[in-house]
Design a binder for these strands. Sequence first.
DNA 1: TTGTAGGCGTTATCAT
DNA 2: ATGATAACGCCTACAA
Lengths: 343, 343
Amino acid sequence: MEPTKMPTIKEIAKRLNVSVSTVSRALSGHPRIGLQTRERVKALAQELGYEPNQQAIFFKQKKTFVIGVLIPHIREEFFSQAISGIESEAMEHQYTILFGQSFDDTEREKQIVETMRRQRVDGLIISLAKNTVDYTPMMALEKYDIPVVFFDRVPLEKNVNKVFCNLYDVTVDMVKWLMDQDRRKIALINGPEKLTASKERLKGFIQGVSSQKLKVDMQFVENTDLSRESTYTAMEKLLQQKKKPNAIITFNEYVHMDAVQYALQHQVKVNEDIFFGSYANLAITTHIAYPPIISIEQYPYKQGIAAMKMMIDLMTRKQEQKETTSDSMHQELKATLVVSGKS
Amino acid sequence: MEPTKMPTIKEIAKRLNVSVSTVSRALSGHPRIGLQTRERVKALAQELGYEPNQQAIFFKQKKTFVIGVLIPHIREEFFSQAISGIESEAMEHQYTILFGQSFDDTEREKQIVETMRRQRVDGLIISLAKNTVDYTPMMALEKYDIPVVFFDRVPLEKNVNKVFCNLYDVTVDMVKWLMDQDRRKIALINGPEKLTASKERLKGFIQGVSSQKLKVDMQFVENTDLSRESTYTAMEKLLQQKKKPNAIITFNEYVHMDAVQYALQHQVKVNEDIFFGSYANLAITTHIAYPPIISIEQYPYKQGIAAMKMMIDLMTRKQEQKETTSDSMHQELKATLVVSGKS
DNA sequence: TTGTAGGCGTTATCAT
DNA sequence: ATGATAACGCCTACAA
């Protein structure tokens, strides 16, 4: 059985003995076209199952209608939800997603950005690998007039487009809540120091503690590179001190799960001896043995939507005003405190 | 600052006062070209940062180098791992992924397949929505000579390309293992009846029970549509019987978690009063409160790799032999039994 | 060794 | 109201 060839306007034109431009116009509802001609064309197009070749159109328009999305890991629920948001918003606007994972490897991230540039994506939405500090590869895209939007794991710089949750205020609130539960020896297992997200958490933590008229003990601040080993080391340091913490805030719920694992192995009663607080409030939490007693929702889906909306916006204004609008867009979403699974 | 325009071979040709074909040949290492000409061209190309416009090339070749990947949910770890496998294999071959989720909605699935066809993907890799029984939308692609590979949630039909885990044998083994633990009243909470995966599980279950010289009690077989409510209903029916099961096999680990939730709420000691067995063996399992005591690994990453490899294969032979090779490819991976978290 | 020309599918700008 | 033609970026058969 011969594969059906995709019909083209040329094909239709030939069969109807009219010119391609007539067909093109008839199909696109051009006003000045004979009523019967239009009908004949449409009928045949229908019959042949004609579909315009988007590739050809995009090529002509110098657009691909593809947005590159580059994230650290799809396996983290946070990012898979973010992708869903991005995808649904993209679909609304006829855009499609070109998907890539950096696996938190800056080198790989750079490569993928390059690949995406070669593929001529119309824009790039990216959440940075944990150690990335050099944004030249992404900025290179902007040189070629390809908009770049960062989300969640964003650069500190002012002059970039970004969507993120402000974690400062809500971290202060979390510390306050723990204090209200009579937990005054609060420790923090923070993420990689370079991450904006880590810096915000730390600032909020310090502010939260000091606002209670307490002195911040830097012995109570550890970092993890997000690996299990590193988190174990952090826990070890915290539990070895003569003054042990009675509350621990972890960077996210994956760190939380590792920290809890360690705690259980060392005869610590989770959420009794030590209260655990965390960030993310993932759906998974419902099913784990020892969820954090308090957590911070960062709305990955909403962030995805917002990032894509910003992208559309950037591309639209790129089209409309030729002049270089070099201001960057920032969008800050408000994170929310969630106590023991209740919203 | 003016956006740097992407240079084209035409641009290079003009600057060097040679023809575009000379530039094209020089760049592609064509043999019969003047050494100095070649060098001059390459030098300028380098200087301008020339990159061939893949869109144009693909357009000419009538190829997009994009493979559509359509899955039910990215949030399920099984699928996110499968995607990773697909992606890494695709990258090896310069292909990129166009990503879509059906959210287990057949109507949406159909729409996305349509969109992907219009986008002229070179192939489609798909894992079906749970209720899908009509494959015409996908088969339509094959009519247009676009290869389709199903994975994991595949149609029963023989004449389709598919990659999947054979669950029959391993299900028999799981039943046998439970019997060996002296659990003879084994129940099954199966998935949607239409799924091949469900049918296989059921066949394996029945075979496993009968091979132990026991009569299969269909009172012990329930179905869930994978929603929590539906699973609760199934559990309710099972626990209400006068002869209660002392082992329950669930369709996958999401169903497992819901079933366990229900059990706990009804004073059942998990993995004591009732042993729980399941399918998938997800990484998540490490962290949940009551993991199944025995589980079946279905190798999502490997399935992804295999599906993409099959796709490459299909596309290659499509190119090479014009003749219609209408045989379909099947690949069956062997699933593995995993006892209480040990591999 | 290098240039010319045609074509991929579509739309836009001229003519007629 | 319709047709002819150029253009998008690249490749390639053919010509010189």
